[in-house]
Design a protein around this nucleic acid. Structure first.
Length: 352
DNA sequence: GACATTTGACCCAA
DNA sequence: TTGGGTCAAATGTC
């Protein structure tokens, strides 16, 4: 039997989710009809607020907290501090094995949509580096699930992982499940906004990362695929500038992808069919993500490797990893957890 | 040679 | 026993 508290709780979540969805649609519509970075920034903030609210509610619900519980760390009036969550987890981690550690980990799921007609719908990046460590076909799922973990797991004892599962129903939708929050410092990959403009490049993806041949083929198309962020990024922009870049980028790139997808040919840039992996030929999915790299910032070999699956937004964020601080104006200063607000899928580091 | 990804094998919870 | 999650050797790329 549904409790009196649960009913409005679920209704509230539904209403917020609908509001969020409509905001996303509005954002795409506005961008396609009359692109304005100012408008887009406002809509970003709205989406950010929805995300926060939903996370608070869901986290509270999944932890058995109710809206009326006065001493819970989560309430509609308060804010959740991820350190509190992590503290509770970490307090127990020393005395348990890895399996139990993972069980204790804070878990949440995001859906990410790729829309080749309108560009990325929603997210650009979670700001962390990830290393793929496995892929597996899950019973009942058409597409394999990919497993990623923090590349600094051993070095910094960071147990964050994520799973990327393509939706069976909608080829453009991916479910990304995050387990655990990053306890590592990934400052090695943060790049100040003031650094010289990076280069945005694309990665083809079938749900897995493309291999070198495909990358090489793409690099041959550099002129059409690479977009300087010089005109897209200003120092005054908030840390979330990459989404702006992504959006503009995809507007441009969308002219490219359909041709590549359908005919493997566009504007003199050819990708032979054999360069598309079997999986990709099956799914014809491209992870239309961005990677921003600043040439004058040094990365170690390990860092370079780690950048695969790093995300454009906070890879270049001066506040690395503090996703909600990307909205410096409206963010609640107490709201400090690392839940990804915007996503890319996997990112690709190519060229220097 | 170094590094990341792939993929079959293994572990373990349900 | 089954299936999801992880490991680690093999492989590929630069």
């Amino acid at each position: 039997m549904e409790s009196a508290v649960t009913w409005p709780y679920n209704t509230l979540i539904n209403e917020l989710a609908q509001g969020m969805e409509k905001t996303k649609q509005l954002r795409i519509h506005l961008w396609s009809t009359s692109p304005s970075e100012t408008h887009d920034l406002i809509l970003q903030k709205m989406l950010s607020s929805y995300d926060k609210a939903l996370f608070i509610l869901r986290w509270g619900g999944s932890n058995g907290a109710t809206l009326s519980t006065p001493d819970t760390s989560v309430s509609v009036h308060g804010s959740i501090r991820i350190e509190d969550v992590n503290k509770n987890i970490n307090d127990n981690q020393d005395n348990m094995n890895a399996s139990k550690k993972r069980k204790m980990q804070h878990t949440w799921t995001e859906q990410v949509k790729v829309d080749f007609e309108n560009g990325l719908e929603g997210h650009t990046g979670d700001g962390y580096n990830w290393r793929k460590y496995g892929q597996k076909y899950i019973l009942g799922a058409k597409y394999p699930r990919s497993y990623y973990r923090c590349p600094y797991r051993l070095v910094q004892n960071c147990w964050a992982t994520k799973q990327v599962q393509r939706s069976d129903d909608d080829l453009t939708v991916f479910d990304i499940t995050y387990k655990g929050t990053h306890t590592c410092s990934q400052s090695t990959n943060t790049v100040p906004l003031s650094a010289s403009p990076g280069k945005l490049e694309l990665k083809l993806n079938d749900g897995h990362d493309l291999q070198g041949q495909q990358n090489q083929a793409l690099s041959n198309c550099k002129n059409s695929l690479s977009v300087s962020t010089e005109d897209l990024v200003s120092e005054e922009m908030p840390a979330h500038f990459s989404f702006q870049s992504t959006f503009a980028f995809h507007d441009d790139v969308n002219h490219y992808f359909p041709a590549l997808l359908d005919e493997n040919h566009h504007q003199g840039c050819t990708v032979s069919p054999e360069l598309i992996s079997p999986a990709s030929s099956e799914s014809n999915y491209f992870s239309a993500t961005t990677y921003v790299r600043t040439p004058n910032v040094q990365h170690s070999e390990a860092d370079t490797a780690d950048i695969i699956s790093a995300h454009a937004s906070t890879t270049n964020s001066p506040i690395g990893g503090m996703e909600f601080l990307i909205d410096p104006i409206n963010s609640d200063p107490n709201f400090e957890f690392n839940m990804p607000e915007f996503f890319t899928y996997s990112n690709f580091e190519h060229g220097q």
